[in-house]
Design a protein around this nucleic acid. Structure first.
Lengths: 195, 195
DNA sequence: CCGCAAAATGCAACCGTTACACATACGGGA
DNA sequence: TCCCGTATGTGTAACGGTTGCATTTTGCGG
């Protein structure tokens, strides 16, 4: 059996991938997303354009969203492995607040967030990334509450909870306060769910 | 003063536009959205590819969404000119139910709806069309309730109400019943709004 | 050292989109 | 009626994103 010792090979692969992602983020922030071509990114990372698609088959937008891997697992886990006595809704709220705060905490992320929010192609892509996991979350909620798999209340909660992340705006109160406000409203409707 | 008598000119323009839209719908349903190129549509309508962009600068997806014109006005009007004594939320619900039922009523629309729902590019586009009016709706709600223009509860309601349209699924109960279920949940949180 | 497979390359082609210069046909005023 | 301005349509060239493929390079294991 082949032990997965990481050799020069996989190291270089990860290295190339990181060079591409870093170059893309830097160039996008510098010149703006639409003003940077894949050729530019490839040259900045000193690889061929074809290589970009080998590493990021999802396309140009995916270049700067590297951490999508286990979002779905974490999302479902937040519901399934919530503290005893905590409602599904509160577990989701805490998870989403943690997600939202995590970004605004590191001040290095500010230009990155500004880039994503000011580029429709990127914010739409981010939305799609989250929505891809919506069905799994809805299924988890439905199962936890004993509802049928396509229960519309479960699907609505899954959708509305995730979309809460995109409702927060920089102006006004903090991320945590805004998410709390939304979930306070949601709780009145869905409060019964999950104990 | 030039009375806007419709002459041969505008008639031919509308004719070309309709030929394009009809050809697109037919071809997309026949072969699938991704298997039809703009060249195919242009040839089916017997025009040049350039002409397609003269009529539909928004691009390929817009070819089959011709009725976007006054959606925003209708949406805002549903809130602003609601019956006395009716809450904002109920007015929105009634409007959205009417929208949802209108489509499923005509059985001719069935393949069209199936096309949109089975093509990510199209359902995303439909979503974006609605979301484009979300800010106006949120502003109207905020003004009606006396909240500040960027009130997050108003923005959340505007967003969640519109998204209710995309939560309904063909299986299970009727469109009306599903939207009612969602709005019954929302009403517990936002019921105070708008009297 | 050799050969296999992964990684990277270069190339060609397609599609959606934009820009532009050109043709055509309609409409309104002289 | 004629003519001119202009809305509409055409053709072409170019660009960027994307895919496929044939080829070369490179690390890995025997």
């Amino acid at each position: 059996m082949t032990e997965h010792q990481i050799g020069r090979r996989e190291r270089k692969k990860a290295q190339t991938r990181k060079a591409l992602s870093d170059s893309a983020v830097r160039l996008f922030i510098e010149r703006g997303y639409d003003q940077v071509s894949l050729k530019d990114v490839a040259e900045a990372a000193d690889v061929a354009v074809s290589t970009v698609f080998k590493h990021f088959p999802a396309g140009k937008e995916a270049l700067i969203f590297d951490e999508d891997a286990d979002r779905e697992a974490a999302l479902v886990a937040a519901v399934r492995e919530r503290d005893a006595g905590q409602s599904i809704l509160d577990a989701l709220r805490d998870y989403l607040i943690a997600q939202g705060v995590e970004r605004t905490a590191h001040p290095d992320f500010a230009p990155f967030l500004a880039l994503v929010e000011s580029t429709p192609a990127l914010s739409d892509y981010a939305r799609r990334m989250w929505r891809r996991h919506e069905a799994s979350l809805a299924a988890a909620i439905a199962e936890e509450t004993g509802a049928s798999a396509d229960d519309i209340a479960s699907r609505a909660l899954a959708h509305y909870a995730i979309e809460a992340l995109f409702l927060v705006r920089g102006d006004g109160s903090s991320v945590e306060a805004q998410i709390n406000t939304v979930f306070d409203l949601l709780r009145r409707g869905w409060g019964d769910l999950g104990k």
